[in-house]
Design a protein around this nucleic acid. Structure first.
Length: 481
RNA sequence: GGCGCUAUCGUCUAGGGGACUAGGACGGGGCCCUCUCAAGGCCCAAACACGGGUUCGAAUCCCGUUAGCGCUACCA
């Protein structure tokens, strides 16, 4: 059997949605796993809503996620002649027919059916037209569409994720395949293109299940073997409804902006609706490709859980060498207007990345270490100052004096720790009472890397200046109640 | 309404008739470690939608019910 050919076919009517991104990811994983080919096709036949900007954003999103396509991008809009030719061929073979019903007439029929409590299905009246009548009306310039003639047989297929799915032909009506302006309707265009591109496996959202019988009927009418269909489940918001704008971030670009790492996003998305079996959570790209199978795809829709994404991102962040974080962190620093003064950011990144979950957090914390005066006192920091009372400022001053001698050349994490321990001991302080005020002074918060390491990355000048500054400004605090 | 799909902890999932006292992960809670936090270690709470079958035996197979979702355009 020749290697599979799959495709990802987004319409450029919006940004790259996480659902679309996951569909693309599954196609890519399948292609890589099987040694097949991934074709990218932009379905831009909806002229009203498609834009080049959207196309570009979608392509960038895919690239960011590390999804490379092997062929394309092709633009469906360029294949209009083929779509039309296929539709007309079906008419010539009697498998489709010209329909002269206008939208208004159709609308009236629909309303009538509904008020009678019936389901509206096109009754096929135009299929009764004689060849002469059709010719006469076309010659007269009457607009017409082409409708596909659906037979009553059962249409079934073995879906790679759902198993056997079947529809009855009589539940379908004769659907339009070519508009009166000669452009193809989605189902026609897709089938025509998938045939032309030799697509062997169609992996797409399961909201397309009800399109599938129509498409299979078209394949058969066109004399082609339908591909294997694999309908992947939808992604839902926390309320169980289809994920949409009102659930917050839904575009992959949003996550990129929030400081999510591409490998984390990819890992998270892969596990939404697919499982290699067993307990795997963090799965590197090559493993993922090796383990990916259609059988591992879930039937059930999955809820997008942002907190798990963040956790996973934190895992990737901690594991990533600081080297690879310098670029993104520097970009973010520029965005928030912080200069790195030409400093090597790696030690700073190393000291904060284990405690961070996004690049944004890393950058924020690096910024504070670059310039402690940027820190903002948070609630816990305020609570500590209240609790310690005058001791907060006086311990700070004590520390500054003790640390002063290390200023020239001895400002290392080891020496700083030893010095702080001595300080606590000789003044009868608990280690925490010596350390915490420094932490708060430098970061505004009671949470950070070990204080000696913090001091080391901030450096002697800024540390000492900041400690004394904060000591001076808090010296007037009232004693604890 | 019609047609279709789906149903295991709050969430993502493991599970393919006995290995199930239903496992893991996120999130939540507790303890240990500890200058704080994170990490790490240990522990706790938390699920097979319901009802019928089939079977010696059912989370697993079948049927029904219920619920959720999708589609039902000269949109894609």
């Amino acid at each position: 059997m020749s290697p599979p050919r799959v495709r990802f076919a987004p319409s450029p009517t919006g940004y790259l949605h996480v659902g679309g991104a996951r569909t693309a990811l599954f196609n890519w994983l399948f292609a890589r796993h099987t040694g097949g080919t991934l074709v990218l096709r932009i379905e831009d036949t909806d002229r009203e809503r498609s834009t080049e900007a959207h196309t570009r954003v979608i392509l960038e999103g895919l690239s960011w996620l590390g999804i490379q396509w092997d062929e394309g991008p092709f633009f469906q809009g360029e294949y209009g002649r083929q779509h039309k030719a296929d539709a007309e061929r079906l008419v010539a073979e009697g498998k489709a027919y010209r329909c002269f019903c206008t939208r208004d007439e159709l609308e009236a029929q629909r309303r009538e059916a509904e008020s009678a409590g019936r389901v509206f299905r096109y009754d096929g009246r135009c299929s009764l037209l004689t060849a002469e009548e059709v010719e006469r009306r076309r010659a007269a310039g009457d607009a017409s569409t082409i409708r596909f003639r659906v037979t009553d047989d059962e249409i079934a297929w073995e879906d790679a994720v759902h198993g056997r799915i079947s529809f009855q032909g009589r539940d379908l009506d004769d659907f339009v395949i070519l508009r009166s302006d000669d452009s193809a309707i989605y189902n026609m265009a897709v089938v025509s293109d998938d045939i032309a591109m030799d697509i062997t496996h169609v992996l797409r959202g399961d909201d397309h299940i009800s399109n599938t019988p129509k498409q299979i009927a078209l394949y058969r009418a066109l004399g082609h073997q339908p591909p294997v269909f694999a309908h992947v489940p939808m992604i839902l918001g926390p309320d169980g409804k289809k994920l949409s704008k009102r659930h917050g971030a839904t575009a992959v670009g949003d996550y990129q902006d929030q400081g999510i790492l591409a490998p984390a996003m990819r890992n998270f998305l892969a596990l939404l609706g697919w499982s290699p079996g067993g307990d795997r959570e963090i799965i590197p790209e090559d493993e993922m490709i090796r383990l990916f199978t259609l059988e591992g795809i879930q039937k059930k829709a999955a809820v997008f859980d942002g907190s798990k994404l963040e956790w996973m991102n934190g895992e990737y962040l901690s594991a990533l060498p600081a080297d690879q974080l310098v670029g993104p962190v520097r970009r973010r620093l520029e965005q928030i207007g912080v200069s790195d003064n030409g400093r090597d950011l790696r030690p700073l990144i190393d000291s904060v990345k284990a405690r961070s979950r996004t690049i944004l957090q890393v950058a924020e914390r690096v910024a504070v270490r670059l310039d402690p005066s940027r820190s903002e006192l948070d609630e816990k920091g305020q609570a500590l100052i209240r609790k310690m009372g005058p001791a907060f400022a006086s311990n700070l001053l004590l520390a500054a004096d003790a640390l002063e001698p290390l200023r020239n050349g001895a400002w290392t994490a080891d020496r700083l720790l030893a010095c702080l321990k001595d300080l606590a001991e000789s003044n009868g302080l608990k280690l925490g009472d010596a350390m915490q005020p420094i932490r708060v002074a430098l970061t505004g918060s009671t949470v950070s890397e070990p204080v000696n390491e913090l001091l080391a990355v901030v450096g002697p000048e800024r540390s000492l200046a900041r400690i004394r500054d904060v000591a001076r400004r808090t010296a007037g605090e009232p004693p604890a109640a």
